[in-house]
Amino acid sequence: MRSLEQRPLFMLRENEDALDDMLADRRYEQVDPVTLYIAETADLTAELKIIDAMPSWPPLAVQLELWKAGGIGPARVAVMNRVTTRQMSLLGRSGDAPAGTVFVALHDDVAMVHALEVSAEFRRDGVGRRLMHGAANWASVMGASWITLAVTRANEAANGLYQALGMDQAARYHYRRAPERFS
C-alpha cells in the first residue's frame, strides 16, 4: 500500500474506541466523521407538488450538471447506475429553475438517500427539504418502512436539515489515516 504511495486508512465505528485511541496515539489523523440518520418513512412523507421533486430514472442531463457543480462527478453517478435494486433520482426546483437533485435506492425495507445536492444559488429556499419529502414519498410507494442516509459531520447545512426534519442519529463513524511518515 505504501509502495503505491497510499496511506493506511481505518474505519472506526462507535464501539471501537480502544483501536481509535491507539491510532490517535500513533498520530493517525481523524478523517470525515460521518453521522447516519434514520427516520420512519411515514414520518417524512408530505403532501408535495409532484414537480417539486420530480422522479426520473436515469437522471436527466440537468441533474448530472447539478451534481457535477456540487462535486459529484461521473464516477459517483456510475455508482448510482450500478445499484441493482430499485433506484430513483428526483429533480427539485425553485420556481421555474432546476435547483437540486437527489438519489435514492431501496434495500429491502430501507430506502437510502444519497447525493442530495442543492445548487448554491438556491440554498435556504426549501429545495433540500422538498427533495427529502419527495424521497420519502417515493420510498413509501415502494413499501420501504425506513429512510436513511449518511452525511459528514462537517456538512452543517445538511446536518441542520436532517435534524430539522426530525431524523434520528442512528450511528456515527469516522476514519483515521496514517501520518505521512511513521515516526
Binding site: 407538488k49 409532484i50 414537480i51 420530480m54 426520473s56 436527466l60 442531463a61 440537468v62 429533480l91 426546483r93 421555474d96 429553475a97 432546476p98
Partner: peptide, 10 residues
C-alpha cells in the same frame, strides 16, 4: 394532472 413546463428536458 400537473405540469412541469420545460423544467425537465429529457
Amino acid at each position: 394532472a400537473d405540469g412541469a413546463g420545460a423544467l425537465s428536458p429529457v
